[in-house]
Amino acid sequence: MTSTPRAQFVEARTRAERERTDQQQRAVRTVAGNARDHTEYTALLAMLGLKDPAPQPLPLSRRLADYVHQVAEVIGVPADAVGHEVTDTATAYIALAQRCVAQPDHDLMLVWDERLGWYIAAETAPTESPIVMAYLAGEAVPPPAAVARFVTDTADGRHMCLIRPVLPPAERTALAEKMAAH
């Protein structure tokens, strides 16, 4: 069965429209994943001649970056001493200038993990696991000021909770919302 030229035209036009829609959706997702905030997200979409299809929450990676930088700022750590990533597990790392009275010869690091929350560890040789000094009990995403107190207390030897927290599994959208609240 051969199709008429009109049917071929309609089919080609439909396919082109579907491809255009797919490209626009990919562009919107790319902008959403890279925009620093909602204002930048909206501005970038406008520059590309795209409309916000629906209010989309910023992804966990962007919320984590903002939250970890807020924590680092409260502690007094520069941005170049901060790292974070979202892969199969969302994690963050902040290199601390403080030393701990219990491990005065080791640099300290503040680490966040979506399953463990915040903890402080003494850095060791690259082939060895860090020495965990203390865990911050409570919720996975506490206010930055609470994390700063935890750092100060641990460095001074006043907070040495070595009980590993058992956090309930968190849905990543909920984690991102908690991070946005700070």
Rank of each mutant, 00 (worst) to 15 (best):
A43H: 05
D107N: 14
L50P: 04
D52F: 00
I94A: 01
R20V: 02
N34S: 15
L64R: 03
A145S: 12
A90C: 08
D80F: 06
A27G: 03
R149Q: 05
G33I: 04
E177Y: 00
Y135V: 05
M109A: 07
L60S: 14
L110Q: 02
T87W: 03
C100Y: 07
A16K: 12
R13W: 15
V101S: 11
L58Y: 00
L48C: 10
D156F: 04
Y135N: 05
A7D: 14
L136F: 01
H159S: 12
I131Y: 04
T87Q: 08
L162T: 11
A134C: 10
E171H: 13
L60H: 13
T4V: 13
A12C: 14
G49E: 07
A65V: 04
C161K: 09
D156S: 10
V82I: 12
V132G: 01
T173H: 05
I75M: 04
P104L: 09
D153F: 03
R15E: 11
S129F: 06
E171N: 15
T173D: 10
F9P: 01
S61H: 12
E128Q: 15
R99Y: 12
L116C: 00
A181F: 09
A125P: 05
D88N: 08
L48Y: 08
E17N: 06
G33L: 07
L175S: 12
D37F: 01
T91K: 10
R15L: 12
M160N: 04
Q70V: 07
A125R: 15
T42P: 03
M1C: 08
C100V: 03
V151A: 09
H182I: 03
R29I: 02
K178Q: 13
S129V: 05
L58M: 11
A176I: 02
P57D: 11
R99V: 08
P126T: 00
E123M: 14
D88M: 11
M160K: 02
D37N: 15
P5G: 12
Y119K: 14
R99I: 05
V28Q: 05
W118H: 03
V71I: 13
P165T: 03
R18A: 15
E40R: 07
W112N: 01
G83V: 03
A140P: 02
L48V: 08
M160L: 14
P55M: 15
R6S: 13
T124V: 09
G157K: 13
E17W: 04
A102W: 01
D113I: 00
L96P: 01
R20F: 04
V71D: 02
A181P: 05
L50R: 10
C161P: 01
G157V: 13
E85Y: 06
R29H: 07
A81G: 07
A140K: 02
T39K: 12
T91R: 09
R164P: 00
M160G: 01
M179T: 10
E128H: 13
L45I: 06
L60K: 14
I131F: 05
A27L: 14
Q25I: 00
T42L: 14
V77Q: 07
M1S: 11
A170F: 12
A148T: 06
P143F: 08
L116V: 00
F150V: 03
R172D: 13
A7I: 10
S129L: 10
P169Q: 06
R99L: 11
Y41C: 08
P144C: 08
A102V: 05
A180L: 02
M160E: 09
S3T: 15
